[in-house]
Computed example of a mutant assay.
Amino acid sequence: MSYTGEIPPGDGPVIRELAGLTITKVSVGPMDNNAYLLRCRSTGDQLLIDAANEAPRLLELIGDAGLSTVVTTHQHPDHWLALTDVVTATGARSLVHTDDADGLPIPSETLADGDVVRFGDCELEVTHIVGHTPGSVVLLYRDPEGIPHLFTGDVLFPGGVGNTDRDPERFAPLIDGVEHKIFGRLPDETWFYPGHGKDGTLGNERPALPEWRARGW
């Protein structure tokens, strides 16, 4: 079965095989959080994006191959409820943007805009986008043999940007960051993987950017 990115709440995993990277997506917890386990196919090194919930399920997914790194996309608790248990069990390093580090339950190494996170022969480019939280990040994998793959946390979803509680002072930098740092830099075929729900492509969402800006959420 081809990968579509659709996964029933609390279900999964679903797996996408790229030339150099395997992406495993699973939905956890009562808030339908997506967690993504990335495995470098040449070395077997693994990285987890958002240890959101249900630590036993995530640890079963990680398996005997171990885990080198957990990246938390932002400080909201539904994205890190399993972080302490996963890090304690695996010895993985924990990474989060410096502006959201105080919101995590364990000490973590901090990220900044433009950083590169490496695991095995793979790497993720870090982009900081303010608005949903002060330290939200998106993570870009540039497939050398295919399309770009972007892990967006709660910054971007099919149908709109992340929640800012209708606060114009939070919405303005978020929509600006999404428009310029994501849509302004990456092509339409870029596939994105959000923190909840189904995946999307930038090409499908690009025509709606003016509508999102006009409605203010």
Results as ranks from 00 to 15, higher is better:
G120C: 07
S94D: 09
R16N: 14
N33L: 09
N34K: 08
L61I: 04
G216Y: 08
L83N: 06
T88K: 05
G103I: 09
E145H: 15
T72D: 05
I62V: 11
G162W: 14
C40S: 14
T43C: 08
G153F: 15
G162L: 15
L67D: 12
V117W: 05
P194K: 00
D102H: 07
P148V: 14
W80V: 01
M31F: 14
C40H: 10
A52P: 00
N163A: 13
G162V: 07
D176Y: 08
P148D: 15
D85F: 00
E123A: 04
H196V: 12
L67R: 03
E6R: 07
R206S: 04
P77C: 04
C122R: 02
D167E: 14
E145F: 14
A112E: 14
D199F: 03
V14H: 12
L202I: 04
G131Q: 07
I49E: 15
T4Y: 12
G184S: 05
A52N: 07
P210K: 10
G160W: 09
P168E: 15
C40T: 05
P56N: 11
N163M: 11
A101R: 14
T201A: 03
G44R: 06
R142Y: 09
V126C: 06
A101I: 05
T43R: 07
R39L: 01
G12Q: 10
G159Y: 08
L111M: 05
A52G: 02
D32T: 02
H149R: 15
A55F: 02
D50W: 09
G216M: 04
A82L: 02
P56F: 09
H79N: 06
I182V: 11
E6T: 00
G200S: 00
G146V: 13
H79E: 07
W191Y: 06
P207F: 01
L150R: 11
L58M: 06
V116L: 02
G103L: 03
D102C: 00
N53L: 02
L174K: 05
F183R: 02
V116Q: 08
G5R: 05
P30S: 06
D188N: 06
S136Q: 08
D11W: 03
G131H: 04
H149N: 14
I147R: 15
H196E: 12
D32M: 10
L140S: 12
L139E: 13
R185E: 15
I49S: 10
F171N: 07
G120N: 04
V87S: 11
T24R: 07
V96K: 12
I147W: 15
V70P: 01
G177H: 02
L38R: 14
A214S: 10
P56C: 10
T201Q: 12
L48P: 03
A172W: 07
W80N: 10
L67W: 10
G203D: 05
